[in-house]
Write a protein that binds this DNA or RNA. Structure first.
Lengths: 218, 218
DNA sequence: ATTAAATGAGTAATTACTCACTCACCTTAT
DNA sequence: ATAAGGTGAGTGAGTAATTACTCATTTAAT
């Protein structure tokens, strides 16, 4: 019955809002239980018990079980696609010293870290997105904006500079995301994210991706 | 409210067992409903209605709702990891004319086809594996056997022949599976598997993978 | 006629959520 | 300082709705 290992997003949310101790306990307990057993298989009385709170308290703030879920997932959804990318883009387009390799290594490590720091939210997110069409649509739209407005202009300059293979941007990004997911998902499923060596993995992932995505020089 | 598009595994199961028409309808309806709404969000009365059957009939054969789920997932689990690989391995090790490129193209196309032909089972499978530790363990063990007994010896010969980069086999396979999943999962989530161009996608996937996994010749 | 399959009303259990009430703490009046 | 009054987070027994599953009975098949 350990406290949340890291779960930075939740910690941040709790710090920013001014929820009572008991309400914070409700969120904490819900996060752990939803991740462990799934949303549907977690009862309100379990949440109350785990949070050491009455069942009435569970519903005082967030009204419904779904309300608790939303409170947990909202900050995650706002942060899956790195805000950082925007900053990165701006830094880049003006100056020239950053290159695709830099960019790739940075993003890979950044997202693997994000996944590690928010395992439970990620697991709950996966459980939900697989059966909620609306959520899929929301994420897809966010993805499109990121792709069109931030990644595409950046990658086009990389391609002009012969640092990046001349493939459609969406195809390149698909591969990058696939490889990232390939490191993350198995560990989420087996609950072995704790023993994840981010430095080694992000190095390996970047190496692999660069081999394919860098144009052959001849 | 269309009939199952393809769902070959179910078709095969129905052909092999001798279930009554009504029991077959129960399986069909359950498959569609579980895939659309999720297992938990599908009620027995919905299954009965969709199958045009009384609610008692739903439980006659498979006893419980979980029983129906198992009947649907069992053939899927037995076939996610290609049986074909065994045959492929045997053909290969004796003779020499097959190479890594051959192998890769074959497997990629084969598994994309499998995913396309069994979308609904796949979606249900994903819903379940993400919250069922036992299932994860079962799949992990199957994966280990496949890796150790069939893939490793094959890949070692590819590596000896300088057709395949000298990385750990598990790492290479992780990347191959990641790329496959990257083609399949988005389409499962968006229910757009129907308009999937397997030939083009498997070609693109193989091209990408070969760029990284083939040793540099110099 | 006998067996098997199907029916659907009924049941027991679960569970998300409510609401009348408590009480610790604060503000204001005297 | 003290009493009176107010507030709102917290409580937990109770409720209404849902739903997986049963079984006595009917229907169909050979």
């Amino acid at each position: 019955m350990q406290i949340n290992s890291i779960e930075k997003l939740l910690a941040q949310t709790l710090a920013e809002t001014d929820l009572s101790k008991k309400q914070q306990a409700v969120l904490n307990a819900s996060l752990s239980l939803f991740a462990q057993q799934g949303f549907e298989h977690t009862t309100s009385s379990e949440i109350a018990q785990q949070a050491a709170v009455s069942e009435g308290t569970v519903f005082k703030q967030f009204k419904t079980k779904q309300g608790i879920l939303n409170a947990l997932l909202e900050p995650f959804i706002e942060n899956v696609f790195p805000r950082v990318l925007n900053e990165f883009t701006n830094k880049i387009t003006g100056q020239q010293y950053h290159n695709f390799e830099h960019f790739l290594c940075y993003v890979v490590k950044d997202r693997l870290t994000f996944a590690m720091e928010n395992q439970k939210q990620l697991k709950i997110f996966l459980q939900e997105i697989i059966r909620d069409e609306t959520m899929v649509k929301v994420m897809y739209d966010k993805w499109q904006v990121l792709l069109d407005e931030h990644i595409t202009p950046l990658f086009i300059t990389f391609q002009k500079n012969k640092q990046l293979i001349d493939w459609p941007i969406s195809r390149i990004m698909q591969y990058i995301v696939s490889i990232l997911a390939g490191y993350i998902l198995p560990r989420i499923l087996t609950n072995s994210m704790a023993t994840f060596d981010i430095d080694q993995s992000s190095q390996a992932a970047s190496d692999f991706l660069l081999r394919s995505l860098t144009p052959l020089k001849d």
